[in-house]
Simulated assay, not measured.
Amino acid sequence: MLGIEAARVIIAEALKAGAGMKPLSVVVLDAGGHVIAFERSDGASPGRFDIARAKAYGAVMLGMGGKAQMARAESQAYFMAALSSVYEGKILPVPGGVLVRDGDGGILGAVGVTGDTSDNDAEAALAGIAAAGFRGEA
C-alpha cells in the first residue's frame, strides 16, 4: 500500500538523492491522482508544486512514466495535446513523473519530482521509490 509512511520515505530519499542537484520538490500521489504528501527543499520555487503534481498526475492517469509520455508526445503531438485538454492541462509529459508499482506490477500511484533536469528529477524519484520497497517506472 502506498500510504503516508511510504510517501514520507519516498520524499526523504528522493530529496537525499538530489542533494547535489538544484533544490527539488517532490509530490506523491495515490492511484486516483490524489496528493498523499508534498515537500520542497529550501530554495525551491513555490510554483514547483504544480509542476511536480502535473508530472505525477500524467503518469498515474495515463499509466505510463514521464519518459514514455515524452516519447509519445514527440511521435504523436496531437494526441498528447488532446489529452492535455481532457485532463484540463493537469499533465506534463516529461521525465520526472514516475509510476509506483507493487511487486505484481500493479499501479499504486506516482511520484513527481521537479527542480533539476527532467532526467535527474526522474533519478531522484526512482531512488525514493526503491527506498520505500516499490518498483518505479520512469
Results as ranks from 00 to 15, higher is better:
L15Y: 07
G20W: 09
G3A: 10
Y57V: 03
A73H: 04
A17P: 00
F38W: 07
D30K: 00
A54R: 14
V60K: 01
S75V: 07
P95R: 05
L24S: 02
V94G: 02
V60P: 00
L24F: 04
F49T: 01
A82I: 07
M64N: 03
F49D: 03
V100M: 01
R48E: 11
D50N: 12
P23I: 02
Y78H: 15
E13R: 13
E74C: 05
S85C: 15
A59S: 11
A68S: 13
M1N: 09
H34L: 09
P23C: 08
Y87M: 15
M21Y: 11
P23Y: 08
P46S: 14
M21T: 09
M1V: 11
L15I: 10
I11S: 01
G43F: 03
I10S: 02
G97S: 07
M61V: 14
G32T: 04
E5T: 15
M1H: 10
F38A: 00
L24P: 00
R72D: 08
A44W: 06
E39F: 05
Q69A: 05
G32Y: 06
A31N: 10
S85M: 15
S85H: 15
A14G: 11
A59P: 04
Y87I: 15
G20P: 04
E5A: 15
R8K: 15
V27D: 02
R40T: 01
V26Y: 02
M70L: 14
A19Y: 05
F49C: 01
E39P: 09
A56W: 00
I4N: 14
L29T: 04
K67S: 08
E13M: 10
G97I: 00
A14Q: 06
E74N: 13
I91Y: 08
V9S: 11
M21N: 08
K67A: 10
K16P: 05
G97F: 00
Q69H: 08
Y57N: 06
A6Y: 04
G65A: 03
A68C: 09
G63D: 10
K90L: 11
V28A: 06
I51G: 07
R48H: 13
A7L: 12
G43Y: 04
A68F: 06
F49H: 04
A6S: 13
A56G: 09
D50L: 11
A68Y: 03
V28Q: 07
A7K: 06
V28S: 07
Y78V: 13
A73M: 07
S75P: 05
L29P: 02
L2W: 02
L99I: 01
P95C: 09
G66F: 00
A12R: 14
